[in-house]
Design a protein around this nucleic acid. Structure first.
Length: 280
DNA sequence: CACCATGTTCCTTG
DNA sequence: CCAAGGAACATGGT
């Protein structure tokens, strides 16, 4: 489920449901998911604690806890590729791959992840390496351009570096480059001022539009057929999956010019682009 | 069986 | 030390 927009939508869903709630029980069913925190420490640190807020940083979920002397006051979550976090009410099934279950009295907070790339732990070290949020004042065209100058890698690959700007993932990197009209193969250091300007603007614009779209969908965070709001929504609501402009559309006609969308492999990941609309 | 997948980290090479 | 490329992680879907 995880790029910045999906995490943002999930955080806005969870925040009002967790704010002020106390943790009465902690089950670690899959120790992998809390690494490098040890399950015993994880349990001891969270038992009895009260959530004060849920926030987002890049693709991480930050769970603030009301302070307790000698205990950490931040729980850090990441969904990896297939992770889900949701509130389970009585009557709803416990997912097969549930890894952490926090008992809240009236309901449970569940973290599940079949593939186990996700995390929920007390380690905050990952946060210090992150670059600016797309809407931060420090994320200026000038600094972004100066950072792009430092590498000859393809611009698509650079967009995935969380130190440049935090939160862009493989799907939205292709979407952003399409909107900016830039070929994913362009060398980062060779982008012109105006190209950097377009890219900077589209990073914000594409992610913002995706958040707005996600907030408008009737999502089922617990699963069903969904998981990625961009791949669909709850079975009951029967909302059609949202189609991207280029991602996943190899050989299909570009929505803007009808040329067949092409697929490439860059740094071991798929890139999709329109050879006619995206220059360079 | 083969290949693909929304992410991050670690190791190797130059 | 740095940049860049690739493998690893682990499982499920097609």
């Amino acid at each position: 489920m995880p790029e910045l927009p999906e995490v943002e939508v999930l955080v806005r869903h969870l925040d009002p449901k967790l704010r002020g709630r106390q943790i009465f029980s902690v089950k670690v069913l899959r120790p992998d998911l809390v690494r490098p925190t040890f399950p015993d420490l994880f349990r001891a640190a969270l038992m009895g604690r009260v959530f004060s807020a849920v926030r987002r940083r890049a693709k991480y979920l930050l769970f603030d806890l009301e302070p307790v002397v000698g205990q950490p006051d931040l729980l850090v979550g990441h969904l990896g590729m297939t992770g889900r976090m949701f509130i389970r009410n009585s009557g709803q099934p416990v997912p097969r791959h549930a890894g952490v279950i926090l008992g809240l009295g009236h309901a449970e907070f569940i973290f599940e992840d079949p593939r186990r790339f996700g995390r929920l732990n007390l380690s905050t070290s990952v946060l210090s390496e992150l670059g600016p949020e797309p809407w931060d004042d420090e994320f200026t065209v000038e600094r972004f351009g100066a950072n792009l100058k430092k590498s000859r890698q393809a611009i698509k690959v650079r967009l995935l570096d969380q130190r440049l700007v935090a939160g862009v993932g493989n799907i939205y990197a292709s979407e952003i480059l399409f909107q900016a009209g830039l070929s994913p193969r362009l060398s980062a250091c060779r982008l012109s001022r105006s190209q950097v300007g377009h890219l900077h603007r589209e990073i914000r614009s594409v992610l913002e539009a995706a958040i707005r779209r996600g907030l408008s969908l009737p999502l089922n965070f617990a699963g069903g057929v969904d998981g990625l709001f961009y791949h669909g929504s709850s079975l009951e609501s029967r909302v059609e999956p949202v189609e991207f402009q280029v991602y996943g559309r190899a050989r299909k006609p570009c929505f803007r010019c009808e040329s067949p969308i092409r697929q490439l492999n860059q740094g071991g990941r798929s890139t999709f682009y329109c050879p006619r609309c995206q220059t360079g």
